[in-house]
């Protein structure tokens, strides 16, 4: 069933400063639907932590941002209905949401995705899609988190579209903390070393 073609998209508006009591309501009575820790036991892949700060054009922390991640499981599969398609049908839900804290800091726990199919049959290096919402952002900012040391980064069809001197803003350095693998991803929304954002 198809209706007459609508006049156009519903425009985006800012999430504003007061979203937490429904979108990230851990401190409120509202039940929490989405978590920052999405590394469920049934998800294949290396457990990793992705953490960092969200900074504005003055380098000051943004303390009222919401972040969402979307990634494949360790075998490069996204959740979805069409099990026969390559890259589909993971048990892993793949979606995480969190707010930054009063220092502008965030952390996700997930699995490191495997390579997923890209344009023209080329494989994409492991990556996680990231959406940023905040007061002062009239529409979502979209970017990707890539992982230091991945052999596929050099030939990744999306990273290759980014000027070489800006690619490092998308590749998270890896450290270890105890037994945990930690990738650091700092979001600089504006100015020097500004994070690359994509039109998707």
């Amino acid at each position: 069933m198809t209706d007459p073609r609508p006049d156009g998209l519903t425009p985006s508006q800012t999430v504003g400063p007061f979203f937490a009591y429904v979108l990230t309501p851990a401190a409120y009575d509202t039940p929490v639907l989405f978590e920052a820790d999405i590394a469920t036991p049934d998800a294949p892949g290396e457990r990793i932590r992705i953490e960092g700060y969200v900074l504005d054009g003055d380098g000051e922390p943004i303390v009222d941002a919401m972040l969402e991640i979307w990634g494949a499981d360790g075998e490069g599969r996204y959740p979805g209905a069409a099990a026969e398609e390559p890259g589909r049908n993971a048990a892993f839900r793949g979606f995480g949401r969190t707010e930054v804290d009063s220092n502008g800091f965030f952390a996700f726990t997930t699995v490191k995705p495997g390579p997923v199919p890209g344009p023209d049959g080329a494989m994409q290096a492991p990556h996680v899609s990231l959406g940023v919402f905040a007061r002062g952002l009239l529409k979502r900012l979209s970017t990707r988190i890539y992982f230091e040391g991945e052999p596929g980064n050099e030939a990744d069809p999306i990273l290759s579209l980014v000027p070489s001197d800006r690619r490092r803003t998308l590749v998270a350095p890896r450290t270890t903390r105890g037994a945990d693998a930690v990738y650091t991803f700092t979001l600089r929304l504006q100015g020097e070393d500004e994070t690359v954002f994509f039109a998707v």
């Binding site: 054009g57 344009p119 905040a134 069809p157 929304l189 504006q190 500004e194 994509f198």
Partner: peptide, 14 residues
């Protein structure tokens, strides 16, 4: 102080 100053990079839909 929050809007990116660099143009967005257009990527294919994968």
């Amino acid at each position: 102080r929050r809007a990116p100053s660099q143009p967005l990079i257009i990527i294919p839909h994968t």
